[in-house]
């Protein structure tokens, strides 16, 4: 007869789970429920009087043409930032994984931007590419390129995408590098002996073995781009010019903080939450099937 160890206690597992559950309840479920409740209220900025208005905030929201523009902007912005920050980070990680002199110095430097607060990152990029003050904008103009993110929506979008990617590449780089180092060298060497070139080795061996990391990063990056980029946008363009960098999360911030319209802002954040939950569910349902653990 086989001997197996069974823990009979009911209390211990719950106790061990408790800290994590408490954090999830306090920092996710509680604020999320507050947002849902607030989205049914109309309140002044100071919170002095509030009134239950049912779905009025949602009706007003979907009647705004600017909201649909913001959804379109969000699709462009999030796809660009996610694809670029994952792609660039993977490229850097594969290069840093080689046997280089001073590799650890490169690796450390690569991680630095992640420690920069979004608003500060935004201000840095704002100044570097400011049409008249910017150290990099001036050469662009001297070369005859009419760089003007203050009026040209495409230029402004390029600028916020660069700033958002720059900040996220560091984080992705770290995980990709760890993922690469976990791949057994013997598998790659076997491929090399069988005559596979570096590119082929990458696509048939390394990339599939890296897929759990890539999948994890995809989920994390989508959450990042949907929720955490408003600080960068605020500092670089403030959603301008003419709303061309107003993403959904920036609009939540602008309507709630600048406009003092907390009900409308809460309604937007509920919509945003639903979208991100749906996106994450889709990823786990369909993309995860291709992941090889």
């Amino acid at each position: 007869m086989e001997k197996s160890v069974v823990f009979n206690g009911k209390l211990l597992p719950y106790l061990l789970l408790a800290p994590q559950l408490a954090i999830t309840l306090i920092f996710f479920y509680w604020p999320a429920s507050q947002a849902i409740w607030q989205s049914f209220l109309r309140e002044d900025a100071f919170g002095l009087n509030s009134e239950f208005v049912g779905l009025e905030n949602y009706q007003a929201l979907f009647a705004q043409p600017e909201y649909y523009t913001a959804i379109g902007t969000t699709v462009v912005f999030s796809s660009l930032v996610t694809v670029l920050s994952l792609g660039v980070a993977l490229l850097f990680a594969t290069q840093a994984d080689k046997n280089l002199k001073g590799a650890s110095a490169y690796k450390t430097l690569m991680i630095w931007p992640y420690a920069v607060a979004p608003a500060i990152a935004g201000v840095l990029w704002f100044f570097i590419f400011h049409p008249t003050l910017g150290t990099l904008a001036r050469p662009l103009r001297v070369m005859g390129f009419n760089w003007n993110p203050m009026l040209d929506g495409t230029h402004a979008m390029i600028l916020v995408v660069m700033a958002a990617v720059w900040k996220q590449v560091a984080y992705n780089f770290l995980f990709f590098l760890a993922g690469l180092q976990a791949i057994p060298k013997s598998v790659i060497e076997a491929g090399a002996i069988d005559g596979a070139g570096p590119l082929r080795r990458f696509w048939t061996i390394i990339f599939p073995l890296l897929s759990p990391t890539t999948f994890f990063l995809l989920v994390v990056n989508i959450v990042y781009v949907f929720f955490e980029t408003f600080g960068i946008i605020d500092a670089v363009t403030a959603g301008g010019p003419a709303g061309s960098t107003t993403t959904m999360v920036y609009k939540v911030f602008a309507d709630g903080r600048l406009g003092g319209d907390l009900g409308g802002s809460a309604a937007q954040s509920v919509v945003l939450m639903v979208i991100v939950i749906a996106l994450t569910a889709i990823q786990f349902r369909y993309v995860e099937r291709k992941v090889q653990y």
Binding site: P241, A242, G243, L258, G260, D261
Partner: peptide, 16 residues
């Protein structure tokens, strides 16, 4: 406060 930004957005749209 926010309305000023909205007006500026429209001015920007015209200037662009």
């Amino acid at each position: 406060v926010q309305m000023r930004d909205v007006w500026a957005e429209e001015i920007e749209a015209a200037l662009a």
